[in-house]
Every structure is written in C-alpha cells, then in structure tokens.
C-alpha cells in the first residue's frame, strides 16, 4: 500500500520547483536582513511588514484567481483606485457608510461584469479587454470626478476611515483581518466551490473545458467580478491607511507589476491551471520582506525596482535550470 502511494505520487505532476526556490530565497533574505539591518528582526517590524502587505495580498488574491483561469486582469489597480474613490466621495458627502459601501460594491461589480462580458461574450483577449477598461476607468474618474487632480483626501474624522485604519482587537488591525478573510474566501473559491473546479479546468485546457460543457462564461463572470471586489477591498484598506486615494498608484504602474510578480514568483504559471492560496503567500512573503529590508537599508525606489527585477530573472532562470521543459510538459505561455 505504501508502495502504491509513492507510485501515485510519482505519477502526479512534479511540484513546481520555483516555489521551493522562492521560499529558500525568502528565508535567506530574512537571515541576511536580520544580521545586516538593525531593527529588522523585531516584532514591531513584523507587524509593519504584515500591515504593509495587506493590500498587496488582497490584490494578489484577485489576480491569482484570474490567472489560474488563464486570464489576466490589467485593470485591477485601476479598479482598486476607482473603488476607493467612489467610496470616499460617498462618505465625504456624509452618506451612511452601509449605503456607500453597497453602492460602491455595486459599481465595482458592474466593472467586473463589463470585463467579463468583453472577454467571455465578445471574445476579446483578456489582456486587451482589461487594458482598455483600465484606461477607461482611470480616465473617466480623473476627468469627471477629480477634474484632473491626482489626489483625493479622506476625511480623517469619518468613523468609517477610523474603523478601517484601526484595530479590531488590541494588536489585530482591521487590514490584517480583511487580508486573512480575502485569503480564506480565495481558498474557498478555488478549493471548495464548484466554480473553482471550472476555474482550474479552464486554466488547464480552455477548449476542453468548453467542449465538455462546463459553464465557462458564468465562471469567467465569477472570476472577474471576484477580482473587482478584491480590488475594492484592497483599495479601501490602502486608502484608509494612507488617508488619501492616490491616482499615481495606477499611472506609475509599479503596483500592477508587483502583483503579477507576486503571482508568478509564488509559482502560479501565467498559462493558468495551477497554484493556490499557498502560492500567493509564498510570493507576497518574498516581495514584502525584500521591500521592507530594502527600505530599512535606505535604498531608493529606483534601486528597489532594479533589485526586484533581478530577483524575478534569477528565480525564472533557476526554475528553468532545475526544472527543464521537455516536449511533454511544454506549453505556449508557460513560465
């Protein structure tokens, strides 16, 4: 029986070696930073890392689900900012928080639906559809609502803002709770729900999923609406923490790349069909540790970008070296 089991494991697809490499690199970085940087290995700094990465984790949850279904959502950060803006305008106009939240959720669902409609019904490639909707959303919000401004300030005295940026229990921030909730919901969507089965099937072989009769359109809607809602959560957490909605987050593009970086480094291939919540955590851990360590070492933002780019290249080269592609496993778009 034990032999059968080990044979069965050999028969399963090899685990992506990239995950192991990324975990090893993260551990190595933690060791190096702890030795080199004063104040890195403290409980206070650990909390800083955790709360700073909340919005990145939540965004990555949305992106991971989309990518596993063999899609891509380039409008994620734009939707995040649009959601935060909508909510801010509503509460700044003294609307009851519950109503403001409801309306914002409705608006973001509409954006998700529009993306999904373009992709599943009009059959535009996901990359182009979401790129177009990202530009549309950002342009519309900056032009019509902010009249060209970059920043929208939140009123610090609003109870909703105070609640979002504060602690739920002593020592447990609301952002951390939202982050854990996002991970749990993602886990349920991918592992526990019927839609999750279809998401993996679509990512593995979209044509086969379609021909088998799986509800590929409905599932595409689920995926992009989920991503839009994840973006909204991230937007609320991020803007409550910083006290402002900053459109430069979209226009400088760094955050979107970081989210894709997290998903890919975590071991979710861009062709889809593989990966899960654990991969998100692995990817965020590396990026968050790297970001925090470099900030403590007073690296400039530009230098940080260079290093993040290098890490990505090294990880992919190492993965290619240890896990060479052969004709059996090679697929177009595999990373």
């Amino acid at each position: 029986m034990a032999e059968r089991k080990s044979m069965a494991e050999a028969g399963r697809r090899k685990r992506n070696l990239l995950e192991i490499i990324v975990v090893a690199v993260t551990v190595a970085l933690i060791v190096i930073f702890s030795v080199v940087v004063d104040g890195f290995a403290t409980f206070g700094n650990f909390r800083v890392i955790l709360s700073n990465s909340a919005s990145l984790v939540i965004l990555s949850c949305g992106m991971a689900v989309v990518i596993i279904s063999r899609g891509l959502d380039l409008s994620l950060v734009a939707v995040m900012i649009a959601g935060a803006t909508t909510f801010t305008i509503f509460i700044n106009a003294d609307m009851p928080v519950a109503l403001a939240l409801l309306l914002t959720v409705g608006a973001m669902v509409m954006i998700g639906l529009a993306n999904a409609w373009l992709i599943a019904y009009v059959e535009i490639p996901a990359m182009l559809a979401t790129l177009a909707s990202a530009m549309l959303v950002v342009g519309l919000f900056r032009f019509a609502i902010l009249q060209g401004e970059f920043l929208l300030l939140l009123s610090k005295t609003n109870p909703a803002v105070i609640a979002l940026s504060g602690d739920l229990l002593p020592g447990v921030s609301v952002s951390a709770v939202v982050m854990v909730a996002a991970l749990l919901v993602t886990w349920f969507l991918l592992r526990g729900s019927a839609a999750g089965r279809t998401i993996y099937a679509m990512g593995d072989n979209f044509q086969a999923a379609r021909l088998t009769g799986l509800p590929v359109r409905t599932t595409t809607i689920t995926v992009y609406v989920f991503a839009a809602l994840a973006a909204l959560c991230a937007g609320l957490v991020m803007s409550a923490a910083s006290g402002a909605v900053d459109f430069r987050t979209v226009t400088n593009g760094t955050l979107l790349f970081e989210v894709i970086l997290v998903v890919v480094l975590g071991g979710i291939p861009l062709r889809g069909g593989r990966g899960g919540v654990l991969n998100i955590i692995i990817g965020v851990a590396l990026i968050a540790v790297l970001r925090n360590g470099m900030t403590l070492m007073n690296f400039t933002a530009q230098m940080q970008d260079v290093l993040k780019g290098l890490v990505l290249i090294v990880a992919i080269v190492a993965d290619n070296y240890f896990n060479p592609r052969d004709t059996e496993t090679d697929t177009v778009g595999d990373l």
């Binding site: 089965r197 279809t198 993996y200 072989n205 044509q207 999923a209 379609r210 009769g213 799986l214 069909g273």
Partner: peptide
C-alpha cells in the same frame, strides 16, 4: 481539446459529470 492534463483521472471524469 480532450482532457485536462494537470488534473487527475477523477477530476477529469468528475468534471464531465459536473
């Protein structure tokens, strides 16, 4: 466009049923 190659036998057949 026949099977899902990263998924198991039971998932492949089960997806047909689902």
């Amino acid at each position: 466009d026949g099977f899902f190659d990263t998924l198991s036998i039971s998932e492949n057949i089960g997806l047909g049923w689902m």
